[in-house]
């Protein structure tokens, strides 16, 4: 209040002026990028890109796959995003169907694995890496409760695991959705739902985020967390008493991909990010987190995950998954929504 030593009127005018000053922050080369990448991944990506492209500043809007997808669709009339990066390919295909993406062939597209991009000549999205499902099993708690380590999806439905499993809600989490999509493709539509009915009996909580089940398993809150290999690897590296299991029937998986919003006003900067995303430098960064990346030959292996992730991936029909996403989620919500966390 001591600032207002002048007359009340002058003070009021100054205050209002200051409020409006706050409102007009410079955003000359700011690129708003919507992403579902993990918070601990985006920092190095941002640093590397901004170093290679001085003058462009990435503003991340980060949330779970389902939320970022819903947000993009909801903002269709007045999109805020310039680029979508690190979102599930199935979600980008939805945006593509809505006509929200700009076709663009990044420099160096020819080197990208043909399976890992929009098949069109000038693609609307290009893959970055593959992420796949994994179990995190808390060995301390499993030992205390005398639980055998599950080896397969089928094992999870055994009554012994009742109330011991956390899994991500597919409506909000991309990791959750790729599991459901995998079950429906592996076991068939009816078989898949039957499997989930059985699994549901053992689920203690459906979480909002795909990382949370693994972290909860790490903290012993639940014994088994259905999550994905990056988080499993990272959590174990952090010292958590978990073992990482890749279910033997095959792994659900999805691609993280990048696409440019048709409505962006920062076309040049957006294209630069898309170009950067397919460079070997970028792919080397992806490879620190994931076993399979878009450029062949850069693949690596994760410290605590067995080597054959590549071979264990199921045959995944992305077009089918994207096409049926709404239908699958509606059915899932109808059957199991009661147990999910508030945000889903």
């Amino acid at each position: 209040m001591n600032l207002c030593t002048t007359t009340g009127l002058r003070c009021a005018v100054a205050s209002i002026a200051a409020m409006f000053c706050l409102a007009t922050t410079a955003r000359a080369a700011d690129l708003t990028v919507y992403t579902a990448l993990e918070a601990d991944q985006i920092k190095p990506y941002k640093a590397a890109f901004e170093k290679a492209n001085p003058g462009i500043n990435i503003l991340w809007v980060r949330d779970s796959t389902g939320i970022i997808t819903a947000k993009l669709l909801a903002e269709k009339a007045n999109p805020k995003a310039d680029v979508v990066m690190g979102l599930a390919a199935t979600s980008l295909m939805l945006l593509q169907k809505e006509g929200m993406l700009m076709p663009y062939a990044p420099v160096g597209l020819d080197k990208v694995d043909a399976k890992m991009r929009d098949p069109a000549a000038t693609p609307e999205w290009v893959g970055m890496d593959v992420w796949a499902s994994a179990f995190c099993v808390n060995t301390v708690e499993a030992g205390k409760k005398n639980l055998p380590e599950p080896a397969s999806w089928a094992d999870l439905t055994k009554p012994v695991y009742q109330g011991q499993i956390a899994m991500p809600n597919p409506a909000s989490s991309g990791t959750g959705f790729l599991m459901v999509s995998a079950w429906l493709q592996m076991f068939g539509w009816d078989g898949g739902w039957k499997y989930m009915d059985e699994l549901h009996k053992n689920i203690a909580a459906y979480t909002h985020s795909g990382s949370k089940p693994c972290r909860q398993a790490a903290a012993g809150e639940y014994t088994i967390g259905l999550s994905f290999e990056y988080r499993a690897n990272k959590t174990k590296k952090g010292g958590a008493p978990i073992s990482i299991v890749l279910p033997k029937e095959g792994l659900g998986w999805d691609m993280e991909a990048i696409g440019i919003m048709k409505t962006t006003k920062e076309v040049d900067a957006a294209k630069k990010l898309a170009d950067w995303a397919v460079t070997p430098e970028a792919n080397k960064l992806y490879a620190e987190n994931f076993a399979i990346v878009a450029l062949p030959g850069i693949a690596s292996s994760l410290e605590f995950v067995q080597d054959d992730v590549d071979k264990m991936l199921i045959k995944n029909d992305f077009a089918w998954a994207a096409e049926n996403r709404d239908k699958i989620l509606a059915e899932w919500s109808k059957r199991y929504d009661g147990k999910s966390e508030p945000k889903n």
Partner: peptide
């Protein structure tokens, strides 16, 4: 947990 209330419903509908 799975116990939904109005306040979380708004959040769920809007953000989720």
């Amino acid at each position: 947990g799975k116990f939904n209330v109005l306040a979380t419903d708004i959040y769920k509908q809007v953000v989720g």
